[in-house]
Amino acid sequence: MSAPLDVERLYDEHAQALFAFLLNFTRHEADTRDLLQELFVKLAKRPELLDGVRDERAFLLRLAHNLAIDLIRRRGTRDKHYEQLAGDSIAVFVPAHEPDEGAFRKALSTALGELPPDQRAVVHLKLWEGLTFEQIAELLGIPLNTAASRYRYGLDKLRERLRPLYDEIK
């Protein structure tokens, strides 16, 4: 028998991280909202999913990733322009007050959108969730080496794309 689920606590502690991951992964705000709601509804329906879970954040991120993959697969058959949407510039970061920093964030957001989704997921989890490659590999269900190489390829692309802007800011 599982303990009653405290959905509010889960939301307050993890919604921000889940939102950022889903927004970066889907590059679509409405989809992010739908997925976030789907995730919490799923947890509310089946609170036993959290039984024995040691790292709530990692578990919820994995759940979010799986839901997002399902959504992309569903879309893939009938919505061919979904990948194009990912390339569009979407505000993933907080708008900056300084113009240079604002331009950098905008370029970073665009560059992230140009990464393949699997690289983008690894880069996000490494940079903005601070997970280790081992944790990322477990979360995404991929080998450790794959997680590391995806990060390296992704970061190389970002570096190449952002170098001029970064040199100006520095």
């Binding site: 950022a20 709601q37 919490f40 329906k45 993933v92 970061f93």
Partner: peptide, 22 residues
């Protein structure tokens, strides 16, 4: 680089949907 904040109005809607589904 700070990520965007989750829109505050989502909280009410999502938690309401979750409570109804529990």
């Amino acid at each position: 680089q700070p990520m965007r904040q989750v829109p505050p109005q989502w909280r009410t809607d999502i938690l309401s949907a979750a409570r109804q589904a529990s």
